[in-house]
Every structure is written in structure tokens, then in C-alpha cells.
């Protein structure tokens, strides 16, 4: 473990101040499940943890019909997947947050942390992109909002500037007759980093796709929104052919590498498999079959 110090912030302004004073070697600590490992293994130069989870704005879940969902960025995953409104309206978030790490990780880890860690294989990010989420950021120059689809810039890198952190995440209220779903492929049945993952949001108008967002992960330097996959669906009936077209768009968008967790071919193939599976699942939800 690096020679880190610890400071607890109780307000957003205090946290901004601490992070600004700490400079590049100050890091936000929420659930700590990624950042503590980074510091322990000396993979990043960190000498100050600013604990933000005691800031009231950072914890909590608020859903308003017609408005949507706001999550405090440090809200632990287990609160997310156990929340009745999240379960009712954002099943993709439930599916992703339920399998990030083991149960003990979920007692601490948060979707804000998952996003800020910006791993290409992050399980939460494709779900959040598919649901059209926005990250609300605070920093020395005030507040700003960034679409989650544009948040990550490279493996472990993102739009946050020195002193900035994510305060909350918000998601629009899903349309009527819509559904979302998320799935990943891992060699075991739990506790693995995704070889590939995929999240979708789908709204139907009768048999026709009124709206769609498709996102895939672990197939590029950042999780990807795949507009071509949505275009293959929107305005068309949801059939095996249109689903296959969306899957093909996902395979085309994928630009994976080969590493210990999977080969490039395997990942590209799985992107197609998973997109088909989550589209079918989301469609069933949109139709009220599930």
C-alpha cells in the first residue's frame, strides 16, 4: 500500500477543495473496491483518499414518474438492485449491479465508482449508456453534466479533470412499452471480469421499434454506444432479421484486443451473441411478457 492519507469530506464543496489541494495524487474514495487495490498494488500514484460517501448528495436513490431516476454516485450497488423503483423501471441496472464483484463488493461498490474507474470491461457502464444516463460532475470550476456515453476516453481514463468528481447519475424515465436488459459473458458463473458485455434499451410501438439504444463493453478501449445497431432497429419491426442486423452492427463496431480474458475473435463473436440475447430479453419486457 502506498503511503496514503485519508480525509473525509462532508459536503461537495469541501470535497472539491480537498481534491484541488491534493492535486493529481489525490483520489476520490467511495466504495474503494477499485481505488484501494490500485493504491495497494502501486499501479497509480496516490497519496490522499478523499472519502465522499458521507456527503448527503452522494448517497441515495430518487425516482419520480415522468422525471426519471437520480442515483447518488456513491450509492452502494446492493441498494440499487434492491430498490423497488429501479427494479420496476431499470432492469438493466439491476442486472449489471447484481453481478459486479461478489456480494461483499456490492456492499461498498457504486455505479459512480464503476464509471469513474472507466474500465473498458466495466459491467455498469453499458447498462448506463443504454439507459441514456448522464453524469453530474462537480469540480473547482463548478458543475457540469456529461452523457455517460461520452464519459470514458481510454482504458482507465475519462473526462474528469483534476479536482472533479461525479456527484450523481441520472436516467430519463423509460417510455411506455419499453424494456431494458443487460448481460455479460464470463467463463465462471460469478466473480469474473466480462469477456464481453452488452446493454440495451428498447421502446416498442406495437410491433415496431420506436426507440433503441445498444451498448457493448470489453470490445474497445472504452464501453461503446453503437448507433448503427439502434438504426438497424428503429422504425422497423422487431424480427430475427432486424435483431441479427443489430447484432452484426455490434460486431462491426467492436474493436477488441486479445488478452488473458479472451481473444479478439471471441469477443467480436460474443458481442453479437449478447446483443441478440439482451434484445430478446428487453423486447419481452417491453411487451410485458416478463
Amino acid at each position: 500500500m502506498q503511503a496514503v492519507k485519508y480525509a473525509r469530506a462532508t459536503s461537495v464543496d469541501e470535497a472539491v477543495q480537498m481534491l484541488r489541494d491534493g492535486g493529481d495524487v489525490a483520489r476520490v474514495l467511495a466504495g474503494g473496491t477499485d481505488v484501494i487495490v490500485l493504491a495497494r498494488e502501486r499501479r497509480r500514484d496516490i497519496d490522499l483518499f478523499v472519502d465522499i460517501k458521507h456527503i448527503p448528495d452522494l448517497i441515495g436513490i430518487d425516482y419520480q414518474a415522468g422525471q426519471g431516476l437520480t442515483l447518488g454516485a456513491a450509492t452502494p450497488l446492493y441498494e440499487v438492485y434492491n430498490h423497488p423503483d429501479v427494479k420496476a423501471h431499470y432492469p438493466a441496472l439491476v442486472e449489471a449491479s447484481h453481478v459486479i464483484g461478489g456480494t461483499a463488493i456490492q456492499g461498498r461498490a457504486s455505479l459512480g465508482g464503476n464509471l469513474a474507474n472507466s474500465s473498458p470491461a466495466a459491467d455498469g457502464i453499458p447498462a448506463m449508456i443504454a439507459l441514456g444516463g448522464t453524469a453530474h460532475i462537480a469540480g473547482p470550476n463548478g458543475r457540469r453534466d456529461v452523457p455517460i456515453a461520452e464519459f470514458c476516453t481510454a482504458p482507465g481514463r475519462n473526462v474528469l479533470e483534476t479536482g472533479e468528481f461525479i456527484v450523481s447519475l441520472s436516467f430519463p424515465d423509460p417510455a411506455a412499452n419499453s424494456g431494458s436488459a443487460w448481460e455479460r459473458f464470463i467463463p465462471r458463473n460469478e466473480m469474473d471480469i466480462a469477456v464481453t458485455n452488452a446493454g440495451v434499451y428498447l421502446a416498442l410501438d406495437g410491433d415496431t421499434v420506436a426507440d433503441a439504444r445498444v451498448a457493448i463493453g470489453a470490445v474497445a478501449p472504452t464501453p461503446l454506444l453503437v448507433p448503427a445497431a439502434a438504426e438497424a432497429l428503429i422504425g422497423k419491426p422487431l424480427t430475427d432479421e432486424t435483431i441479427e442486423a443489430a447484432a452484426e452492427a455490434a460486431r462491426q463496431a467492436a474493436n477488441p484486443i486479445t488478452d488473458m480474458r479472451g481473444t479478439a475473435d471471441q469477443r467480436r463473436h460474443l458481442a453479437g451473441v449478447l446483443v441478440k440475447r439482451v434484445l430478446n430479453k428487453a423486447a419481452a419486457r417491453a411487451r410485458g411478457d416478463e
Partner: peptide, 16 residues
């Protein structure tokens, strides 16, 4: 050895 952790050296977990 790049998978030197219990995350990437994949021993069976309870639901495997």
C-alpha cells in the same frame, strides 16, 4: 504470469 490473482486464475465458485 499476467493472471496472478484469484480474479483471473479462475477456481470454481459456489454457483459453478
Amino acid at each position: 504470469v499476467v493472471n496472478a490473482s484469484l480474479l483471473d486464475y479462475r477456481m470454481p465458485v459456489a454457483n459453478d
